[in-house]
Design a protein around this nucleic acid. Sequence first.
DNA 1: GCCGCTTCTATCGTATGACTTTATCGCAGA
DNA 2: TCTGCGATAAAGTCATACGATAGAAGCGGC
Lengths: 258, 258
Amino acid sequence: MRVRDFSRPTTLNPDRLFGQVAQKLAVAVISGRIKAGEVLPNEDDLRSEISVSRTAYREAVKILTAKGLVEARPKSGTRAAPRERWNLLDPDVLSWHFEADPNEKFIRDLFELRRFVEPSTARLAAQRRTSADIARIEAAYRGMADGAPYAEATIRADLAFHEAIFSACQNAALQCLSSAVIATLQWSLLLKTGDEAAYIESLPDHEHVLLAIIDRDGDLASARMAGLVIDSLNTTLASLGTHVATETGKTAKIKHTK
Amino acid sequence: MRVRDFSRPTTLNPDRLFGQVAQKLAVAVISGRIKAGEVLPNEDDLRSEISVSRTAYREAVKILTAKGLVEARPKSGTRAAPRERWNLLDPDVLSWHFEADPNEKFIRDLFELRRFVEPSTARLAAQRRTSADIARIEAAYRGMADGAPYAEATIRADLAFHEAIFSACQNAALQCLSSAVIATLQWSLLLKTGDEAAYIESLPDHEHVLLAIIDRDGDLASARMAGLVIDSLNTTLASLGTHVATETGKTAKIKHTK
DNA sequence: GCCGCTTCTATCGTATGACTTTATCGCAGA
DNA sequence: TCTGCGATAAAGTCATACGATAGAAGCGGC
């Protein structure tokens, strides 16, 4: 796909050869071009696709193995792993998804995760935030408010806003979910690009979350963040051409079309 | 540490040479024996520790790179990465933590994550469960009730109980968190081994969760799971010799000692 | 003596070829 | 038909070599 990924640079070097091969293979697996059968046999790949040494190829495979995308067993070959084995929350795996066609079910799943996690992070952030955290969140909010909708800088500010809230939680395990939330956000922004009204409307919601966190009001921060996520989900799914209804109460139920 | 890890076999082959080297290095990084400085220089390791070829060593390093534990920059060397770069929710990384000394802060973080996530999974499971899901969860519960506390089979049943609830959510992204929850459970069971009373008392809680899921009562399932997690946290932290107070209402605040 | 340039070295990345280990598959024998 | 053994294919391991470059060490000019 032709989408730019604005998340922080991936851990593995993309201008190194093994990194390129890893990405190439990963996208082939994630996009479904390689199902759960054989991966391209060693020598075949080397001779046809790109001429790359066995070393670089093997190291690429090791990376994918580490992320659960493929499984290599001695005699039977290196096969693409079934999806339930993939580390879907790995930053690189999330990032590689942007190179494939949008998977609607997966985006829904990510949003559901976000809906469960992000209100809690807002609550924690309200309870534990330092003044430095406030400064970061506020700066990010200003970046969102000042920039043009869907400009790169604005998007970065949006991502930074949510990242800063995670960071204020002081929880290393929780922090690891920030990449998943950020990927969800990117899908969201990507899908509704052009819908300026939706973006403008979301600004006050962000500000309200910020204010609640400043006030150390965990319940309020949580509730406002929940609202923000649900609004985002609704406009995103609307862009996806799917219908969504919001239940009364705090949870939103996604109508399963078809 | 001398702890057994009962989670499903890791994705990367432990009886392969590179797997052993990867584990060795990973534990050295996670335990803090290697800080954020240089990793053992190539040749030094090869000659002293275990005689292993550069190939195997490099592939091990690639695995750790993929999981964010180390960073190999072109010419300056391979260094242990700062902790915020680690993929703490990666199944292997979680598993490697069992080889190091218990990190109290990290266990608290994991419990916090669990507290946020697992009630939601119980709610979703109640809404979406099939009869097959019920069968799995119920079988796991029977395994817990029938076995002796802290016997291996009983522990496996406990883990299976929670895993089955994740599975009933039909959410691939959420599913990836099951390994983190299971790791948390294992830490919990490990730390309070011997406290049979705590285990016996948790049985009805599990049963109540199961019943709520059978009844498709999402709110009830969520509330009961929340109670279960908080009880587990309290007894676990008590075993850790730390004091915890339960706030009135749905959230528990962990008193930060010192 | 301080600063900038050159050189030198350590270390990662890549390539190649040979050998070992493992597990699958098919054939032969009971 | 079942059992078992060997052929075989693919991953795993080893040794070696070379290229590139970041960073250190040494050198020379101001």
